[in-house]
Structures are given as structure tokens and as C-alpha cells.
Design a binder for these strands. Structure first.
Length: 318
RNA sequence: GGUGCCAUAGCCAAGUGGUAAGGCAAAGGUCUGCAACACCUCUAUCCCCAGUUCAAAUCUGGGUGGCACCU
């Protein structure tokens, strides 16, 4: 059994700084829990820990994949578990840090019989047939015939997930809910103490987001994206090209938006994303909230937040 | 000072007599294989006052505010 710690929270909540403090205090190595920081050369826009920060605490799952490659939650889990085992073996504590809720959810579920990998061709064909709302409902009805549990969990407009569920059935003859049921239990190999950063007053987070976007631009976000784009590394349908900060700069590069507009779109997209992250982590079983501001909405000093996290981790891991 | 135009949700905006479209934002939520994705829910009595009418955001008068032009 591996005991690990996790620090999650919305973008710009201060995860990186806190994680370094925790890692130094408790003897951890950091495993990146982020779907975009895994990519090479995407440094500024993903707010990756700097080289200097990385030199103070060992980081894993960071900066290893070409932006042209797609990744998946399952692939993440396999690699991250490998890293966690290795860290534990060397007598250190694995500390997961990042904002990708799906990756953490996948991580704490058991490895059992796996549903097949998704086939882009299968998806593309079905997507092309969905030309109207009636067609989308029809497809969803088809799913409901074979797997009512999965169908009820997904809206008919969410074609991406409807198609996925159908694909699993067509490929294996078993329903998606069959595979889901297998993974309802805990991952027997991993136990995670999960602290999530939250805010009493959303405005505090939004102010940090706006400030951070401005800082990214000053640090040269546009040139970072431009270089990747010109080197052909931001293909149209890749995961990397969907990254917030990157897709907006691409708009500018393709003259589809002015820089001024792109910055506004970027800030807005970041705020929307942060809200989804808050929902995800708040509703996750076992998440222990640590607030970055007090009841009156005043920001707490960074040392206090760090101390709170450390004390929670110490208490639980006694 | 005069004339004309305009006034609908936080913003943009449709609606010209029959009981307030839509988009964005905000807020809440869903979720195992593209997740920084995809998707769902949800927000008004139409500037104010008076009148006409069975019925007014829609017509009339007055007021207030804004814009344009004229002097």
C-alpha cells in the first residue's frame, strides 16, 4: 500500500508554491497531476514550476510528452503509479499536485478489466452522422436500449460521451456501466490524503487569475505559442492545442482575433475553467478543503495556508 | 434654446396591440479513456407618471436620461 498526498485546487490558487513548501517540510517528491504540464515546451501558459523550483524538489510526470501526442487518464494512471511506487521505495512520500480532477479520480480507482481504448475513426463516423437534434436523441435512445444506466448519466447532447459508451459496447459486447461498476471500489494499492484549495470569496480567485494572465503575457506567452505553432507542434485536434492560453494565442497568430480580444477571451476561459475545477474538487469524496481566504473574504498570508496544509497531512498520516 | 432618434436582465440584443426570442457574463451542476474537453440547469415583467383599450414593451401625452444635428 502506497500512502500519497495530493494538493488540488483551481488554476491560480497557489498550488505550486504550497506544494514546494509541503514537499520540503515532509520529504515528498512531486508528481504532476495536470493534463497540460506534461507537455514539453508548454511552460509559461501552463504555469509549470520553474527550473529553479524543480531543482529544489524532484518533479515527476512533467515535461515529457510532445504536444503532438494525445494522452489519456488511463495512461496517466499507469505512469503516475509507477512514479509513486518508485518514490515510496526510496523512502519518500509521493505528493500529487495539479488541477486535473479526472486524473485524480482515475488514480484512486482500482485497475481491473479495462474498457477498450477509444478509436478515433469510430467516433468520427458517428459524429458525422449527427446532423440534427433528432439524430442525437436517436443515438442516445440506442444507448438507452443497451445500457440504461450509462444513458441516464449523460445528456443526449453530450455526444462525445454517448459515443464512447456505444463504442465500448460495440467493441466488447459489454456495457460501459459494467466496466464502471468494476471500478467503483478503491484502488487497493494507493491511499491518498487529498487537500483541495478553495475560496470563500470567488472574487479573490478571479483577481488572481486576471493578474496571472497578465504576468504570463509579460513573460512571453505569445512567443512561446508562436514558436510551437511555427514548428507545427500545435495541430488542430490535439489535446495541447486546446490548452487555455494556447488556443487564444493561436487565434491571434491566424489573425482571427486581435491581441486585446484574445486576452479577454483567455481570462474568461480561465475563470470558467476555475469554476469547473472548484465543482469537481468540492464534490470529490475525501477532499479536505483549505481556504485561501478567511470568512470575511480577506486573503490569508501564504505561510498560514502552507502551515494548515502541513498540519492536515501530519495529522492524517500519523 | 430648437429639431430628430433612442431608452427591454450585469452586457449585447429580438420583439410594433394578445401576455417578454437569443447570445455573452454571473451562479449551480454532470463526468474514467480528447478532461485546460464535452455537456446540463438557471436569470426581466420592458426608464418613470398618466391616458386609450377587453388587452400596452408595443398606441397617445408629459417627465427623466442618452445620442445626433441645427442655432
Amino acid at each position: 500500500m502506497i500512502h500519497a498526498l495530493a494538493i488540488t485546487g483551481p488554476t491560480a490558487s497557489g498550488k505550486t508554491a504550497i506544494s514546494l513548501g509541503v514537499a520540503i517540510a515532509l520529504g515528498c517528491e512531486i508528481i504532476c497531476l495536470d493534463s497540460m504540464q506534461i507537455y514539453k515546451r508548454m511552460d509559461i501558459g501552463t504555469a509549470k514550476a520553474t527550473k529553479e523550483e524543480q531543482s529544489r524538489v524532484p518533479h515527476h510526470m512533467l515535461d515529457f510528452l510532445s504536444p503532438t501526442e494525445n494522452f489519456s487518464a488511463q495512461a496517466y494512471k499507469e505512469m503516475a503509479m509507477e512514479a509513486a511506487r518508485d518514490i515510496t521505495y526510496r523512502g519518500k512520500i509521493p505528493l500529487f499536485v495539479g488541477g486535473t480532477g479526472l486524473y485524480l479520480s482515475t488514480l484512486i480507482r482500482p485497475d481491473v478489466e479495462q474498457a477498450p481504448e477509444s478509436d478515433p475513426e469510430y467516433r468520427r463516423k458517428l459524429e458525422e452522422s449527427l446532423t440534427s437534434e433528432e439524430k442525437r436523441i436517436e443515438l442516445w435512445e440506442r444507448l438507452r436500449q443497451i445500457d440504461p444506466v450509462s444513458a441516464d448519466a449523460v445528456h443526449y447532447n453530450n455526444t462525445r460521451r454517448v459515443i464512447r459508451a456505444l463504442e465500448i459496447f460495440d467493441a466488447t459486447g459489454k456495457t460501459k456501466s459494467y466496466f464502471d461498476a468494476l471500478t467503483k471500489k478503491k484502488n487497493e494499492e494507493l491511499e491518498v490524503t487529498h487537500v483541495t484549495l478553495d475560496f470563500h470569496n470567488r472574487e479573490n480567485l478571479y483577481a488572481r487569475i486576471n493578474k496571472r494572465v497578465d504576468a504570463m503575457l509579460e513573460e512571453g506567452l505569445f512567443n512561446e505559442v508562436k514558436a510551437l505553432y511555427e514548428d507545427g507542434l500545435l495541430g488542430e485536434f490535439t489535446t495541447a492545442s486546446q490548452a487555455i492560453g494556447y488556443k487564444e494565442m493561436i487565434l491571434v497568430l491566424r489573425s482571427l482575433a486581435t491581441m486585446e480580444d484574445a486576452v479577454e477571451i483567455l481570462k474568461q476561459a480561465t475563470r470558467n475553467y476555475a469554476k469547473r475545477q472548484l465543482t469537481w474538487f468540492r464534490n470529490m469524496d475525501g477532499a479536505i478543503p483549505v481556504y485561501a481566504d478567511d470568512d470575511d473574504g480577506n486573503m490569508k498570508p501564504a505561510e498560514n495556508i502552507l502551515a494548515e496544509c502541513i498540519s492536515i497531512f501530519r495529522k492524517v498520516n500519523k
